[in-house]
C-alpha cells in the first residue's frame, strides 16, 4: 500500500501542492487526474524521491519511503527520453542494472517483453532508428523490466496508435491482476473509465476529488434519462408531458433516435415508459451517468459569477 500523507510543496513563492493525501492499494489502477500545471507531476516526482516535499510523507506498506524503495518502483515520466545512440539492448541493460538487475536477468526480461510485443528484431537497433511509437514501446519495456511492485505511469498511452493503446491497456489490466499497484496519470478520460478503479483529481495544487470511478460518476449524475427508439420524432415530443424536458437528441437514422431527457417534479422512469407506449417503439432506456470527461471539465473550468454550471 502506498500512502501519500499531507504533502505540500512550493517552488519559491509558487505553491505546487497543498496538503495532498491519498492511498493506493495493491491490485488497483489509480488514476491521477488534473489539468496541466495542477501539481500531478510534482506529486509523482515526490513519490519517486526525485524531489523532496516541504511537508508530509510518503509511506510504502507503512514504512517511510526512502531511496532503497526505488527499486520497487517503475516510473515512466510524461516527457521521457532515450539515449539515441544506444541500442535497445544496451539501453535496457543500463536502466535494468541501475534498478538492481543482473545483466543476465535484464537480458532474460528483455527477451520476454520483446517477444510478448512481437518486436524481437528490434533488440540490436539503435534508438534513433525507431519511430516515436516504437521508442514509446521500448520506454514502456524499460519501465517494467525489473518487475516493479509499484508502477507510476505519466501519460503512458500518448504517442501510441489505437492498436498499441489497447495492447498497453491489456498489459496494465494483467499487471493489476498480478497485484501490482499502478498509478496512472493521464488526460485520456476514456481510458480512465475503462481501466481505473479509483481516481483523484488535483486542481490548483489541491486534491478536490477522490473515489472509485463508478462512485464519482454516480454522485455527479443529474437525473438524465436516455431513450433509444424507432418512430417519429414529432410523435415522441408530443407524447412527452410537461414533466419531461428534451435536453438533446441524436439522429441514428430517418426513424431512429436517441433522446436525452430530464425529469421534472415527481415523475420517474415508469411514467416515461407509460407515456411512450404505443407512440414509438422503444429499443432501450437507461439512466445517463456523466462521463469522466464531463466531470473533469466541470470541476476544473473556472466558474464566473452569474454562470450556471
Amino acid at each position: 500500500m502506498l500512502e501519500v500523507q499531507h504533502i505540500s510543496k512550493s517552488f519559491f513563492r509558487k505553491t505546487a501542492l497543498e496538503d495532498v493525501s491519498m492511498t493506493v492499494r495493491e491490485g488497483e489502477i489509480f488514476g491521477l487526474l488534473g489539468p496541466n500545471g495542477a501539481g500531478k507531476t510534482t506529486l509523482i516526482r515526490i513519490i519517486n524521491k526525485i524531489i523532496d516535499a516541504d511537508r508530509g510523507v510518503v509511506r510504502i506498506n507503512g514504512d517511510l519511503m526512502t531511496q532503497k524503495h526505488l527499486s520497487m518502483v517503475g516510473y515512466l515520466p510524461e516527457e521521457r527520453g532515450l539515449y539515441k545512440s544506444m541500442t535497445v539492448e544496451d539501453h535496457a541493460l543500463f536502466l535494468g542494472q541501475l534498478r538492481g538487475l543482473s545483466k543476465r536477468d535484464v537480458k532474460m526480461q528483455l527477451d520476454y517483453w520483446l517477444e510478448k510485443f512481437t518486436i524481437g528484431d528490434w533488440k540490436k537497433k539503435r534508438i534513433e532508428e525507431l519511430s516515436k511509437g516504437m521508442a514509446q514501446k521500448v520506454q514502456f519495456i524499460c519501465t517494467v523490466l525489473h518487475e516493479p511492485k509499484i508502477l507510476i505511469l505519466d501519460e503512458p498511452l500518448s504517442g501510441f496508435d489505437p492498436v498499441n493503446v489497447e495492447l498497453i491497456k491489456q498489459e496494465l489490466i494483467e499487471m493489476r491482476a498480478k497485484g501490482k499497484l499502478i498509478i496512472l496519470s493521464t488526460h485520456n478520460m476514456k481510458s480512465v473509465e475503462e481501466i481505473c478503479d479509483r481516481v483523484a483529481l488535483i486542481d490548483h495544487s489541491k486534491k478536490i476529488l477522490e473515489g472509485t470511478v463508478s462512485e464519482i460518476r454516480e454522485s455527479r449524475k443529474t437525473g438524465e434519462i436516455a431513450i433509444k427508439f424507432r418512430g417519429s420524432m414529432i410523435a415522441f415530443v408530443n407524447a412527452l408531458w410537461t414533466n419531461f424536458e428534451l435536453v438533446d437528441k441524436e439522429i441514428l437514422a430517418d426513424d431512429r433516435f436517441i433522446a436525452r431527457l430530464k425529469t421534472r417534479g415527481e415523475t420517474n422512469f415508469d411514467d416515461l415508459l407509460r407515456a411512450m407506449m404505443g407512440q414509438v417503439r422503444i429499443e432501450a432506456v437507461w439512466e445517463v451517468l456523466p462521463s469522466m470527461q464531463d466531470i473533469f471539465i466541470d470541476l476544473v473550468t473556472p466558474k464566473t459569477e452569474g454562470t450556471h454550471a
Binding site: Q67, Y75, L82, L98
Partner: peptide, 16 residues
C-alpha cells in the same frame, strides 16, 4: 542533452 531529451527524469527516479 540528457536534460533536453528528458531521460534525466527516468534516471533520477533511480539514481540520486
Amino acid at each position: 542533452r540528457e536534460k533536453s531529451n528528458r531521460i534525466v527524469e527516468v534516471l533520477l527516479a533511480t539514481v540520486h
